[in-house]
């Protein structure tokens, strides 16, 4: 069977999914990137490979997304490399064809995507501040000694949430500490933080956007039931959480790969198992002295052979590799 691999390398998690040619999910892997995206790609790929052996079939297309999309694309040989917004939009409208609003909160960024007739119509990302994203929740849960998986369940037992200043992550933390010292129960503080983050999201990312039904909430943070409740309360609308909310980006990437490859005359650029699993992959960076811009150019090598360059504004380095190789899509 023809299978499509979707890869989403984010700041906090790296996700892999396998879809069959009818878009049904056959396998998913959710890993923590832990600051080493190369390792995460290798680890995730070997896990997904095991799953592939079980379900059978072959990889007919690869899509990459997330902040590490270029890296994943180079290591695996992606047929399509797309930004997270498109990937999330595609995945959500595949599962909910009439979706109008997507709230996506990931490890370090949060976005709002508005769709019309299944097509992204408007979007916004957090630009100056990451207060209220997954990393911050992680940190606070750790500080309160609560496993992040249990955060949401604890929060929704609260009957009266405490008001917490949520504009700045650091001040939110001081406010929480203050409220703890005043003696408020932990549940109420947890729920208060959820409310503050939801408010912050709607004021910053969702600023000036018209949020319409149906609303889909996805990304790793969607696992937090407290935030779901906070959004429902603030918006006055039901909020849907997809079953595989944490890997929606990867699902989108796989769907995009399927879209690209379905009627493509040429075979997939997927480089095969051996390319990723064997061979030592290293990265190095260097300041280019070609002009006053002094770009920091990163080079990814496999066994010493350069695979990719990026970071050069003039594309001098990048174009040394791509001269004879057409790139199907880099957008």
């Amino acid at each position: 069977m023809r299978m499509y691999l979707g890869v989403d390398i984010g700041s906090v998690s790296s996700n892999f999914v396998l879809l069959d040619d009818r878009g049904r999910m056959k396998a998913k892997i959710y890993l923590r990137t832990q600051g080493n995206p190369i390792q995460a790609v290798k680890q995730g790929f070997s896990a997904i490979n095991k799953e592939l052996d079980e379900v059978g079939g072959e990889i007919a297309g690869v899509g990459a997304t997330g902040s590490g999309r270029l890296l994943a694309g180079v290591l695996l040989g992606a047929d399509i490399i797309k930004n997270e917004i498109t990937a999330h939009g595609v995945a959500a409208s595949w599962l909910y064809p009439d979706v109008r609003t997507i709230i996506e909160i990931g490890g370090q960024d949060s976005k709002i995507i508005l769709l019309k007739n299944g097509i992204v119509n408007d979007f916004a990302m957090n630009t100056v501040c990451a207060a209220g994203t997954g990393s911050f929740l992680d940190q606070q849960a750790a500080r309160l000694n609560i496993p992040i998986e249990e955060y949401g369940e604890r929060a929704i037992t609260s009957r009266q949430s405490v008001r917490i200043a949520g504009r700045c992550g650091v001040f939110a933390e001081s406010d929480m500490i203050h409220k703890q010292q005043m003696g408020y129960p932990v549940e109420d503080i947890l729920m208060g933080l959820c409310d503050a983050l939801a408010r912050n999201y709607l004021n910053n990312v969702g600023k000036g956007k018209k949020i319409e039904e149906p609303v889909v909430f996805q990304g790793g943070v969607a696992a937090n039931l407290g935030l779901k409740r906070a959004f429902e309360h603030l918006l006055g609308l039901p909020v849907h959480i997809p079953e595989h909310h944490e890997v929606m980006g990867a699902i989108g990437a796989a769907l995009l790969a399927r879209e690209t490859m379905e009627y493509s005359p040429s075979p997939s650029q997927f480089k095969g198992n051996a390319f990723v699993m064997d061979g030592e992959i290293t990265s190095s960076s260097q300041e280019c002295r070609g002009c006053p811009n002094l770009c920091e150019v990163v080079c990814i090598r496999r066994d010493g052979v350069p695979l990719a360059f990026w970071g050069d504004r003039c594309k001098k380095w990048e174009s040394t590799l791509t001269k004879n190789r057409p790139i199907r899509s880099v957008i």
Binding site: K82, E84, I85, T86, F123, I331
Partner: peptide, 11 residues
């Protein structure tokens, strides 16, 4: 990312 997403959306 934002430029790519915007261009992609327009396309």
């Amino acid at each position: 990312t934002r430029l790519e997403a915007f261009v992609d959306m327009l396309q």
